[in-house]
């Protein structure tokens, strides 16, 4: 099969899967009540950020504990463009991708020289430092108070077409197209030569270099792509109501990493599963525990404890996450 034809098939499959995902979420939202519709919006938003970890850590082997901070870069970029310069929300989302990617370029240039715990430490420091910048330059970033932004109301043409649209459904309509496009992009990147190059660097840098791959440049490119995605997620996340340091705390980065690990760091399907799990698990635990007389000082910590436990079990017993386990089951069935 020619190279062009292979690319066309991959493109077609990616498009098809993104469309299936889009329709599936829309159909799912129709079955959900308003709260779970808002949770779907959360999933659609955070999924883009988890994809950035799938690319960065899963595909290229670079550990980042600071994706939440890059989300903050995207969030502040779009909120400042809207509130200070009067840009449209949609344009601000697109520009947030480029601004975050540019940030990722600088970060990537430094990161290309680091690996393992050194890179993890550097990105963690970034996660801690970026919210402080917003406070340090309070006049520009509005400090702790942050910038109040939202998705607004659905346009008239849409309400004329579909009837009354709730705030929750409108939020999902704003976010979901971006998630579908992100899914398309990640699928394409992963399955083409680019993805193979990244995986080659991840698996053996020396062998990859001997095969003619520029290691440093590859790492920087991955950082740029992952940062663009995280920035977009941050912009969408902020427009739920507020862009402020407390919206992008350090534990947001860890939550994203947890989702990626539980689902399977190297799998896009795993990213989807992991994101569903971290968003819906606390609700599920609350529903189960509601029927038991659990003391308040234990009940409030249960969701975090359960997710932490799930993460530990995954890392110890099933490091490839849910996607890896699924793959393993399929192999056992075949043989």
């Amino acid at each position: 099969m020619s190279k062009v034809k292979t690319h066309k098939i991959i493109g077609l499959r990616s498009t098809l899967l993104a469309i299936v995902f889009f329709i599936f979420i829309i159909l799912l939202s129709n079955q959900f009540d308003a709260y779970n519709q808002s949770q779907l919006t959360n999933i659609a938003t955070l999924l883009i950020a988890v994809f950035s970890i799938t690319l960065l850590t899963g595909a290229s082997g670079q550990i980042s504990l600071g994706q939440g901070a890059i989300m903050a870069v995207g969030g502040y970029s779009s909120a400042l463009l809207v509130t200070r310069l009067g840009f449209s929300m949609w344009i601000s989302f697109i520009l947030a991708i480029f601004i975050s990617a540019l940030f990722g370029l600088f970060l990537g240039l430094a990161a290309a020289r680091l690996s393992g715990p050194y890179l993890a430490g550097t990105t963690l420091v970034m996660a801690l430092a970026i919210p402080s910048i917003a406070v340090r330059f309070e006049g520009f970033f509005s400090g702790d108070v942050g910038l109040s932004v939202d998705y607004g109301n659905p346009p008239d043409w849409l309400t004329n077409l579909l009837g009354e649209i709730s705030i929750e459904v409108w939020s999902l309509y704003v976010v979901l197209p971006f998630t579908a496009i992100a899914l398309f992009a990640v699928l394409n990147l992963s399955n083409t030569r680019t993805g193979r190059t990244w995986r080659a660097v991840r698996d053996n840098e020396v062998a990859a270099a001997l095969a003619g791959i520029n290691i440093g440049r590859t790492k920087v490119i991955v950082f740029v792509c992952a940062s663009g995605l995280a920035g977009l997620a941050g912009a969408l996340y902020g427009f739920r109501g507020l862009v402020a340091p407390s919206v992008y705390p350090t534990d947001l980065s860890l939550t994203l990493l947890t989702a990626a690990v539980i689902g399977g760091l190297r799998s896009i399907g795993g990213a989807i599963f992991g994101t569903f799990a971290i968003v819906f698990l606390p609700d599920l635990i609350e529903k189960i525990t509601k029927n038991f007389a659990i003391p308040e000082n234990i009940g409030t910590y249960l969701p975090a404890l359960t997710i932490g436990l799930l993460l530990l079990i995954t890392v110890i017993l099933n490091p490839r996450g849910a996607a890896g386990a699924l793959e393993h089951l399929r192999h056992r069935k075949r043989h």
């Binding site: 899967l17 079955q31 959900f32 779907l40 699928l187 896009i268 599963f273 569903f276 819906f280 699924l326």
Partner: peptide, 20 residues
């Protein structure tokens, strides 16, 4: 990423459905 992706999307939906 093909069949597993569809499977995991369905599995994710199941997690979600539990709390509808």
């Amino acid at each position: 990423l093909r069949k597993p992706l569809i499977l995991t999307v369905v599995a994710s939906a199941l997690v979600g459905s539990l709390v509808i």
